[in-house]
Simulated scan of single mutants.
Amino acid sequence: MNAHSQPPAAAAEPAPLIDPFGRAISYVRVSVTDRCDFRCVYCMSEHMTFLPRRDLLTLEELDRLCSAFIARGTKRLRITGGEPLVRHDVMTLFRALSRHLASGALEELTLTTNGSQLARFASELVDCGVKRVNVSLDTLDPGRFRALTRTGDHARVMAGVDAALAAGLRVKLNAVALKGVNEDEFVPLVRFANERGMDMTFIEVMPLGELEGPDRIDQYLPMREVRDRLAETFTLTETDYRTGGPARYMRVSETGGRVGFITPLTHNFCESCNRVRVTCTGTLYMCLGQEDAADLRAPLRESADDAPLVAAIEAAIARKPKGHDFVIDRATQGPAVSRHMSMTGG
């Protein structure tokens, strides 16, 4: 290199999206479908009316939307649903997004699934750079599983979990803690997960969408009760382990594994929230528990130039609220928001 030569300039880091409370938004959860092959009793109605396909973003539009977020500093991208793996040709999207992993612009591409399709897709997900997945599993009992999911096949999900582990994916199991339903399974779930090298995370039921059947106050179990029940069997110690999401983890001395707790009601995680959610129709929700939203489908479809889309994203982040107002009690009638979790994206 001669005296007048300059080394090539390093690529500039994209300016991060900063909300009004100084939080950098680096984690985006993108739903690819509102459809699901299960009808979990705490998540959706038994007879759901799903969106017409014309309202959904195409896979190409989803790629473009995700890429716009990545260009503005998104480091973690989670694909959700409904059940994302029931979306026709969804692996086309994973293959397209894998280029951002290869370039280093994206640090992690992950997936939340009910596990029903994992046996089909686990190896292909690994080929696309996915290293870990979250699998929703509220019970180890096939009969109880059928009652909770209304349509789910427990053996198929177990085969999916086995296939994911065999393919080299790190698997985390998520269970919604349901009073009087799966309380007797908290310890067995932790043992089952940890003995197979998986983390186990428990989640408080959230007031999203109108449901038939039991009131959520009758389903609701605070995480402190879950921890207390586990502490009767296990020695739990604090850990600073994080995955970028809202779970707080503890080490289980007897298994050598971890158990996580997600507490949207008893101890919300809003102050450190670095996440936004985009629905399969291109609606951006800045907070899971608020109705304020931004339409990203219109700028996507109105212009081949990404500038209007990026402007819409920036304007939405500029009004991200400080937190949600989730409440579950006898005096509070109806859900905090009317949309079901399957519509927002898990």
Rank of each mutant, 00 (worst) to 15 (best):
E302K: 01
A315S: 15
T201C: 14
A105G: 04
C43N: 06
H154P: 02
E291F: 05
L56N: 03
H154G: 00
L17M: 10
F121W: 13
H4D: 12
R72S: 12
P264W: 10
E210G: 01
H340T: 04
S103A: 15
S136R: 02
T283I: 13
R144E: 07
V86R: 05
K172S: 01
D329H: 09
I25C: 09
L284W: 03
E238H: 13
R95Y: 04
P308R: 06
R144K: 15
G289E: 13
L236G: 04
N2M: 06
T239F: 09
Y285M: 12
T201I: 03
R229I: 03
Y249Q: 11
G209C: 08
E225F: 08
R29H: 08
T201H: 13
R39Y: 01
G323R: 07
L59W: 00
G180C: 09
C36Q: 04
L309Y: 04
G104Q: 07
F261T: 10
D240H: 13
F234A: 07
T263Y: 01
H267G: 12
S338I: 00
K172D: 01
V157F: 05
G260E: 10
R258V: 02
S26M: 02
F121T: 11
T92N: 14
A164K: 00
G22H: 13
Q6N: 11
P8Q: 11
S98W: 12
D292H: 14
T263I: 04
A102D: 15
L57G: 06
V28M: 12
C128L: 09
P321S: 11
S116V: 12
C128M: 07
D162Y: 01
A24D: 05
N114R: 11
K172L: 01
Y220E: 02
M206R: 02
G160N: 01
P16Q: 09
M343R: 14
P52N: 07
D228Y: 06
L109S: 09
T243L: 14
L178S: 05
L309K: 07
R196V: 08
P222H: 11
V276A: 15
C273W: 10
L57D: 02
T149M: 07
G346W: 03
A119Q: 14
D138N: 15
G334R: 12
L109A: 11
E60T: 12
G282V: 03
R242N: 12
L51A: 14
L101F: 13
G289P: 05
A293W: 01
L208D: 01
S98R: 15
H88I: 11
L173Q: 02
Y220W: 15
R23G: 07
S338E: 14
L165N: 00
L148N: 00
G129M: 10
G334L: 13
P142S: 10
E46P: 11
G213C: 10
L288E: 07
P308S: 04
L300W: 03
E204A: 08
D127F: 06
A231R: 14
M1P: 02
